[in-house]
Write a protein that binds this DNA or RNA. Structure first.
Lengths: 206, 206, 206, 206
DNA sequence: GATGAATGAGTGTTCATTCAT
DNA sequence: AATGAATGAACACTCATTCAT
């Protein structure tokens, strides 16, 4: 929480390097060089490299799932709510795509000792919020009954993550050259595509 | 291609360790110990650790995307074809989830010099095949017109990958304890969920 | 000499830690934590870690060899004097066993720059005092003539030091479990044993 | 046991440095430089710095307490046996004074994880052997009855250790300048002094 | 063809000390 | 007078790789 300016600088550099090179692929010396600080500062500030990652996760995760609650309670139709949630979700995840990438890499490494419980809690909470919107829509008769809500997130985030992980492929297909091209495509076409997909699933009578 | 028995043993061990611990998290000593070979053999056989990964990728990629072509040409309805393709896709990706995990991890590490062109080609080809099925369905009037075919893969594989990357979360939600529980859930519920989603997207008039 | 309360607190903590963990095995951070002071205070107060040790030695050495002179001048038989001296010696060394342990460890480390001249002077003086008692006894005809006085201290202190350095061994042999058990054994059996040994040497005609 | 030439070279260098600078005061880099080997070799050969010390102890301890048994069974008077034992003991300990110094330093550092059980066993066995000689002398009526045998070692070895630990003092008193002077004094005067002391204790009727 | 020995570079971390305040 | 922040050097150890055999 109360991180000094230099600590935040370290966190930013660490985030970028961890995302680019992986946690193991990043040395504390690399971080210290780019952040223009002494190597020892990382241990001094965060205790260890692992705790630096933990601090980074906590630092970034704090900003997630705040606005979502407000969104859920707005007086708009469930369909619009879902659209907004997807938009917000994609925006959030994409904005924090570095930390998400790191977390997913580390989540699959079963050895790591990093405590991801906070991350899981946030996700569970988000699923609950979405569930309430779905239930609302179901009661209004606009959504189908048999919806596996926890599996909506994989569609939304999974699509985004997969898209980001295959930039070479999609850059070639959709002629996206710059980072801005990608971000623009994500916030327009991809977002719309996912919204359309989820809406179809929710209302389609199969 | 022409790998000796020992080389294949090394590749198998490397695949598992790379997937479990990450490329950087795996030492050639770890590999050599589990594969019961001398450390020097890895450099001797493959040149370097990086080239071992390349050899592994090439070795595994050859087996991907074979049967899909036959499936596309079968005399069944486009909807059934799509269902079968999804089923096959999920099965394939899940069966080769180790190498997929490695590839995705490495794809995001922009430093690594591994040539993923072959991988991209396979994907492009798969998209073409799916496109042909979609077109078939569109001409028959059962599928909507405005389908972004390249973005179907993210939904299918992205969902699976995200599901696998959040085992801790989904294991808790769906009470999946063993590896078999997960595999079973993937081949039933998750597959069905994705099939339903894609079908909804294809036929839903929005 | 004129040490403030906090400085003495630091010296006490340092003494214990140096004795328990060795000089190199003790970090100034360990000392500062236990003494509840800032790390920088050690350099600030004493100049450096090495000078802290010097200060400690000087601080403790001042209290050695005071009462011995009085004892020598008492009007009691030379044999009783020797007994008393041994008893006092063992008591003193055992009471200050921490600093003795440190000094002996450091005396053997020939790299350390600590000035042990004061320590040597004290010892030389003590030898002189014992010499005077021996001479007194020799003139009275109760002690043998050929006594190597400087080598009496090794027997007395050496025995004690060796005993303390082999607590695991002697604890097992003599069933000494607690620190009190050891101290008690030292002030009774071991003291008596050493007294008996020295007396035998002094009066035994070989 | 089966150490290569280079390993023995490392052990020799380590022995000297550990004795001179202490275990903590010696870095593996210091050892590697003097032994003209790569730093990594120490970990490679011995596993770690701590295990290097253990290997050193075991390597040196093997040579202790062998000849003692033969000596005990010789057909000579108990007094001569004791004289010979002391002479042998002092010679052995002095010859291996480095390792003894290390062991005693480490024995007093209660933190260290080094297994000294083998060392203790050797000492216990030696005490038993001496006990048998004392008993023999007691049965022959040449030794007193009330002898605390385990406390004989402190007198013998303690004297030697203390003498060695106070070279500055005794060098000044006895005009010993070179290392040879010291060794010569130990094998003549000091040995004789200790023999005389022990004999006095054993035969003196107090 | 295959390997145990060996290496230099690099790892994260801790150290005693200094500096600005 | 006193301290929290910061540092460069050193620490033990592991790494992928090479080399002599």
């Amino acid at each position: 929480m109360g991180f000094s300016e230099k600590q935040i600088e370290i966190l930013n550099v660490a985030e970028q390097l961890f995302a680019e090179e992986g946690y193991d692929g990043t040395s504390v010396r690399d971080i210290s060089k780019i952040a223009h600080i002494n190597v020892a500062m990382i241990s001094y500030y965060f205790g260890s490299k692992a705790k630096l990652l933990e601090a980074l996760v906590i630092h970034r995760i704090g900003s997630l799932g705040l606005k979502l609650e407000n969104l859920v309670q707005e007086k708009i139709s469930p369909v619009t709510k879902i659209e907004r949630i997807i938009e917000y979700y994609i925006h959030q995840v994409n904005a924090n795509r570095h930390i998400h990438q790191i977390l997913h890499q580390e989540a699959s490494n079963n050895k790591r000792e990093i405590n991801l419980d906070a991350f899981i809690e946030v996700k569970k909470n988000n699923i609950s919020l979405v569930q309430s919107v779905i239930s609302e829509g179901q009661e209004m008769g606009v959504f189908q009954r048999n919806i596996n809500v926890p599996l909506l997130a994989p569609i939304i985030i999974g699509s985004l993550v997969y898209f980001n992980m295959n930039k070479a492929l999609y850059g070639a297909i959709f002629s996206l050259k710059t980072e801005d091209d990608f971000n623009n495509y994500i916030s327009t076409e991809l977002t719309q595509h996912i919204q359309q997909t989820i809406k179809a699933l929710l209302v389609y009578e199969n």
